[in-house]
Design a protein around this nucleic acid. Structure first.
Lengths: 179, 179
DNA sequence: CACTAGATAGGACGATCGTTCGTGCTTACT
DNA sequence: AGTAAGCACGAACGATCGTCCTATCTAGTG
């Protein structure tokens, strides 16, 4: 719900109704709306780990795992695990100009995701799969950019072609780095 | 204000206070909050045109104008014309999962922006500046992706390095297409 | 069985939301 | 001078917001 209405636009009453609880009963579990938002970010983080990060870890470090990250990310967007697309794209867009614990939590996750991508680039360089002259952080930024925009376009248009653009962009970018 | 609090999070009372009017006096000009949001999108569209699109039209069609689009976009982000970054990145992120006239308006602008970028790629191909084998829409997608993510990171971190990443990404991507 | 801790419900609170109404003030035209 | 139009205002509306208080129910412990 937070990916559709926003972390702030989601109200206690609607959430309580959705889970079949009373507003006060739900509220008692968190104590404040901000705590609920932080718990929501934690929950989304866990889901993302389970659906994207952990499954990719079965692939060999380097290029295979990097491609698995991209494929699993796009899959979780296309399958509408979150109806409003990637949770952290929604959250960062909403919170990026609003300092506070919620923004810090979402930002920390985004940076962890970026560093995971960068690490796979580094590993791919170490194994000789990718050009060692490239800046891993820069490549991670570019690949993530494709995924973020593709996610937004897919949510807005429901057109899987947006995700195909991401795949092609990733492919052609990695091709320029293949030795 | 809409780029910080969101088009929905912005309330009539706060806006009226900010412009030194009464809530009812301001409201009378629009008739409903949705009309205010649509007028806000129109106003932001005009500002973007004046600061980014029109100034770039003095550059020659093709590669020079394409680079001007990127440079002016990054400039308007860095100068915090909108305190929450590019208005349409904020708007699309908030509205992408909420069908309605507001989303349609923001989406239309985004697609116009993308088509402007794609047209410059086509012109650059026609003038022999860029590889004619590339798909202009695909290149526009990739360049816009850099700008969108760079915008989000800059707003969240206030670190101009995010915009430098965009510049480098654009440069290296265009370099692969230079004949 | 008595007692306690925890979860949930209902109800109410003050604040704020978008919206409506009635009114005074200014401006411009007859 | 008289009048109509438009603008801005204060006040209030019902709805919804986050939050708090209190009561009820259940599970587990002695």
């Amino acid at each position: 719900m937070a990916t559709v209405e926003g972390l702030d636009g989601l109200s206690l009453a609607r959430l309580a109704d959705a889970v079949g609880m009373s507003k006060s009963g739900l509220f008692a579990h968190f104590g404040s709306k901000e705590e609920l938002q932080l718990a929501t970010i934690d929950a989304a983080s866990t889901i993302f780990d389970e659906l994207v990060i952990e499954p990719a870890s079965t692939e060999a470090a380097g290029l295979p795992r990097l491609r698995a990250y991209v494929a699993l990310f796009l899959q979780h967007v296309e399958e509408a695990v979150f109806p409003g697309g990637c949770f952290f794209v929604s959250a960062m867009s909403e919170l990026d100009a609003q300092p506070g614990p919620a923004r810090d939590g979402a930002l920390a996750f985004s940076q962890r995701w970026l560093s995971l991508l960068a690490r796979q680039v580094m590993d791919a360089q170490a194994t000789g799969e990718l050009d060692p002259a490239a800046d891993p952080s820069q490549i991670a930024f570019e690949l993530n950019a494709y995924m973020v925009l593709g996610n937004m376009q897919f949510v807005a248009t429901s057109d899987p072609a947006a995700l195909d653009r991401v795949r092609q962009a990733v492919d052609s970018r990695l091709a320029t780095l293949t030795v």
